[in-house]
Design a protein around this nucleic acid. Structure first.
Lengths: 314, 314
DNA sequence: CGTCACCTTGCTCATATGAGCAGGATCGCC
DNA sequence: GGCGATCCTGCTCATATGAGCAAGGTGACG
């Protein structure tokens, strides 16, 4: 295609897309046959001169979703558009909304849904509509009795999801991480706790997010880890955590001793589930998202466009 | 349009624009008739959810051009797209290219073209192709013997335009601004200078740019004005200059005394021309561009998208 | 509860567009 | 300059889309 044709294809595109002329009219205006105009427009599209964006908070990027499914072996992928996003909060909100939409549309409806907790999960619970399902019971899959004043968001999350879904919530009455291994064993042998974990193991689906390994982590905020602890984990290769368990870029546990003191389902238990929905968004979580997908921790990923593109780059 | 339809229109748009499905296929996928799908897509477009951009250095914004013609009374307007522009230089280059294109396509071909000088005009001269016209003579319309080492760009500009257009250049051998009024009168009464100005008055078309009233001005760079002089002009309301004459936002001469010492056509002489092409681009020139268009100094404007939108906002 | 105005829906029909093909131009190669 | 391969052009025909219309549904109001 020479320069003259390239220019013509731009003129044609202007008339077609901005002025809503027919290819025939454009042909008359530019002294071309309408077939030539059609070919010029096809060329312009093919060469990437035409960009079509859908500007809407609920817009998704289907081609990227397909690539994620095909190239990264996911059962399903939901990628929200970043077009026109102004703030990180907006991106988070869009992703949470998309996750809520996905849950709502999920068939068959899981009778029991295992959930983690955190900012993302809380947002999802808030975006779910009342009556999004009927009879969906929720069970926590990792410890989450918070040590600080924001105590209760973990519980509130599970309760909101279950109530809006017309079911019951079963909370895991345990801290996320215990200081001593013995305490962890003791708690796990508690009849109630053991029962909840057993129920969690039998859940038909899991819904969880991932945290970045930095000082903004909910584990730091909740007091389970000190900022210095996180630094140590990062030094050992941690990129983030899933259900409280810190992993490296290959999805392996970074610190087995710490992991042994963490209450909840193991990563392998989640990995073996036929339906594990991970919701991960934001630039800070690119690395964890990659680890989660690489190590097949999830079968379904809900994320934003730029995170998705990051996954596909690798 | 309720929320459910809005969402459907987004889903439909994704399938239509990103997945290239037919409206019929979309209908099957979403359980709608194809007519409903067509209406949803029309709604999505109408509501501004669909943005189509032409990404190309030569792309223009025809709807904005039309608005400029209709709302600001221009004979013609050329607006280059800002989509995908990374640097100010790129914007300047695009605009210069568009101006060169406009000149090349201009019919009837002007026998004599009056030009000003400056960075923009130089860029235009460089973007013109050899043989862009045959027999176009060029005459300078304002003084421009530069006082510094970059002397010669003014002359080079006029010569390049005329040579590539198969004609002769007539230079105005005078400084842009003189220090004393008497000197200005003396120069103007010089037979050669008077002849050139007479020729300039008879030009069939004018091509000029406008400068912002700031320290980057070519007048400062060339030594005709000191930075402090510009500050004074700004204090008097100057927004920029056209052919060396500083104007306020209404297009009026800001400093009559200074203006009297400026050699070249007057603004009214340019204003009375049936074809006066102004080329003005860049955020710094929004104010001058507005003054130029408001005071009808030009009949044709070549500019960039954001400047054009600025003009239409007022 | 009836009536009317308005909006939505699913259609028919005209138009716009894309696929595929045959003839003709263009180019490299000898 | 001859020859074949390739690309380009303008066509026919099938398909996709938008305009306009009549029927049905909805809601406001008496």
């Amino acid at each position: 295609m020479d320069e003259i044709d390239e220019l013509l294809s731009i003129r044609a595109a202007e008339l077609y897309y901005e002025e809503n002329k027919t290819q025939d009219e454009i042909g008359q205006a530019l002294n071309l046959t309408r077939w030539k105009v059609g070919r010029l427009l096809a060329q312009a599209k093919h060469r990437g001169f035409i960009r079509i964006e859908i500007l809407h908070p609920r817009a998704r990027r289907l081609p990227i979703e397909r690539r994620l499914r095909e190239e990264r072996g996911l059962t399903d992928a939901i990628v929200v558009s970043s077009a026109g996003v102004s703030s990180a909060e907006e991106l988070q909100a869009r992703t949470a909304q998309a996750a809520a939409d996905y849950l709502t549309a999920l068939r068959p409806v899981p009778r029991t849904l295992g959930v983690s907790w955190g900012r993302t999960l809380f947002d999802i619970s808030q975006h779910l509509r009342n009556g999004w399902a009927t009879g969906v019971n929720v069970v926590q899959i990792n410890g989450g009795v918070s040590l600080n004043r924001r105590a209760g968001t973990a519980a509130a999350t599970a309760v909101a999801i279950s109530q809006k879904g017309g079911g019951q919530a079963t909370l895991l009455p345990s801290p996320a991480i215990l200081e001593r291994l013995e305490t962890k064993h003791a708690i796990e042998s508690d009849r109630v706790v053991a029962g909840v974990i057993e129920l969690a193991r039998s859940a038909e689906a899991y819904l969880f997010s991932a945290g970045a390994a930095d000082h903004n982590s909910v584990h730091v905020e909740s007091g389970y880890l000190a900022p210095g602890d996180v630094d140590l984990l990062v030094a050992k290769g941690a990129v983030g955590d899933v259900v409280g368990r810190y992993i490296d870029s290959d999805g392996n546990i970074v610190d087995p001793a710490l992991d042994a003191r963490t209450v909840g389902l193991t990563l392998d238990e989640i990995r073996s589930s036929p339906l594990a929905i991970a919701v991960v968004a934001g630039p800070a979580k690119h690395a964890v998202a990659d680890a989660v997908v690489r190590s097949r921790l999830c079968t379904v990923l809900v994320t934003d466009e730029s995170t998705a593109l990051h996954l596909l780059d690798g």
